[in-house]
Every structure is written in structure tokens, then in C-alpha cells.
């Protein structure tokens, strides 16, 4: 599904990603862990097409297509979903209008007719329940006045609405209490199928108690310094990152 080869990216002339290699296949859950400033969020942003990052080297292919050639909206319509670390507040744009526009633009991209209003409302209701999102929030402006937990649940709600093939969840767990974390993780687990894949970016091992990854990668200083199965996460929990850093520095 996704193949990243020697990806290098920088922002304002400063190199953040220094040669990332990663392959994600359908049905897999990958966890990317690492200390602050290691480049985790940059990787997520580059994959979603954020323009402030310049890709200086490397290739990313997504279902055989050159991902880096696509605009953010094309990537989204092709099934890439970024769960934002800090969801943006957009005053004056209602959640309903936002989601309806997004769903219909993605349908248009696939050559489908716009969804009917009744089907859309039904879909909204269904997906809201999945993340236990308060019905009233849907009538408010996007993320405006939402609590931290509501914003994160709103990200998973949007993911449920758009049914992406590849979800990249950028620290969706940070700032959540354990109840909210359960709801978010539960949402992600329910949306998992054999056809889609998820990359969870986190620096808390706690999330991985609820979302069981197939692979764990440790990112440090712009490079993946270690990959392994879910047991790697436990090792990190126990020993921290330093033993790996020292390893890689040698």
C-alpha cells in the first residue's frame, strides 16, 4: 500500500527527516514511537501533503502512484487520512457543512453522485455513536469550543465518515484521560479491516495497550533506528529510548 524509500524532508532549510524507509501493507497497524523532536509529526505532515515541508530526496509510492506528486486533497480523496495532533478550529464553518462538503468532494473524485441529505444525516448519526460524540457538537463550528478530548474524538469521527485506506494518527492519544483514550482506541479498532492500514504516532506506550500494533518503529533524529514487533514497545516502556540512541550513535 505505502512504500517510503529514503525520504528526506526539511523545513526552512533545516533537515528533519534524514532518510526514512518504511513499508505498510493492507491490514497492518504500525506504531511509530520516539522522543520529542525526532520527526514523527513531520513524517505525518509530509505524507498528508503539508506544503511548508520540502521533500529533498526519496520516494513515496502509494498503491503504485507517486504520492509526492499529489495535492493534499487528492491524497485525501485517494484514501489517506491524517488525524491531527492539534485539530484546527474553524469559526463559522459548521461540522455538518464541513463533513458534507468533504464527503461529496471525495465522492466526486471517485465519479459518484453527491450523497442524499437523508443518507448523509443517517451516516452522521451512526458514526457519531462510534466515538460517543455529543450530537450537539455536529451543529457547532468545526472544533470551535471543543475540549481537548472532544477534538480528538472528532478526528476519529471524521475518519469514520471518510473511511480512509491509510490512516495516520498523529499523537491522537496525547492529552487524553483514560476514558477518552478508550473511546478513541475503540473507534480505531472498530474501523480496522483487512483492506485498510493505520499508522499510529505516539510517544506514550499506553496507547498500545488499546491499539495493538503489528510493527513498532523507533524514530530518532529523523531516522528509524529500530523496528520490531509489539514487544519492542514493552522494552521501550522499561528502558526508555536512551539505550537505542546510544546503540545507534555507536
Amino acid at each position: 500500500m505505502l512504500l517510503i524509500k529514503n525520504l528526506r524532508a526539511s523545513v526552512e532549510g533545516k533537515e528533519i527527516l534524514k532518510g526514512i524507509n518504511l513499508e505498510v501493507k493492507a491490514g497492518e497497524v504500525h506504531a511509530i514511537m520516539g522522543p520529542n523532536g525526532s520527526g514523527k509529526s513531520t513524517l505525518a505532515s509530509v505524507l498528508a501533503g503539508r506544503e511548508i515541508f520540502q521533500v529533498t530526496e526519496g520516494k513515496v509510492s502509494y498503491f503504485g502512484k507517486d504520492l509526492l506528486e499529489m495535492s493534499p486533497e487528492e491524497r485525501a480523496s485517494e484514501g489517506i487520512f491524517l488525524g491531527f495532533q492539534y485539530p484546527i478550529e474553524i469559526p463559522g464553518v459548521s461540522m455538518v457543512n464541513f463533513m458534507k462538503t468533504a464527503v461529496n468532494e471525495q465522492r466526486k473524485h471517485k465519479g459518484l453522485d453527491p450523497i442524499s441529505s437523508s443518507d448523509f444525516l443517517k451516516l452522521m448519526r451512526e458514526k457519531k455513536e462510534l466515538v460517543e460524540l455529543d450530537a450537539a457538537l455536529a451543529n457547532r463550528s468545526v472544533n470551535e469550543g471543543f475540549s481537548g478530548g472532544e477534538k480528538k474524538r472528532n478526528e476519529i469521527f471524521q475518519m469514520a465518515m471518510l473511511e480512509p485506506k491509510l490512516s495516520i494518527l498523529d499523537e491522537t492519544d496525547s492529552g487524553l484521560d483514560i476514558d477518552a483514550l478508550r473511546i478513541v482506541a475503540n473507534g480505531v479498532n472498530k474501523l480496522k479491516t483487512a483492506e485498510n492500514a493505520t499508522i499510529v504516532i505516539t510517544h506514550y506506550q499506553r496507547l498500545l495497550d488499546y491499539i495493538i500494533p503489528d510493527y513498532v518503529h523507533v524514530l530518532n533524529n529523523g531516522k528509524i533506528i529500530k523496528s520490531g514487533g509489539k514487544e519492542l514497545a514493552f522494552e521501550l516502556e522499561e528502558k526508555g529510548y536512551d539505550w537505542l540512541k546510544n546503540d545507534s550513535d555507536k
Binding site: 498528508a48 501533503g49 503539508r50 506544503e51 495535492s71 493534499p72 486533497e73 491524497r75 485525501a76 480523496s77 487520512f81 491524517l82 491531527f84 485539530p87 484546527i88 474553524i90 464553518v93 457543512n97 464541513f98 462538503t101 468533504a102 468532494e105 471525495q106 473524485h109 468545526v142 471524521q158 471518510l162
Partner: peptide, 19 residues
Amino acid sequence: AMFYLRARGIPKKEAKLLL
């Protein structure tokens, strides 16, 4: 906000109009 809207599949022109 523009990027947020575009990351959900809304084309740049439409995103601009929405805002």
C-alpha cells in the same frame, strides 16, 4: 485551516470559499 480542509479532500478553491 486551509490545510485542515484540504486534508479532508476539499479542493483548494472550495476550501478558500468555505473560509
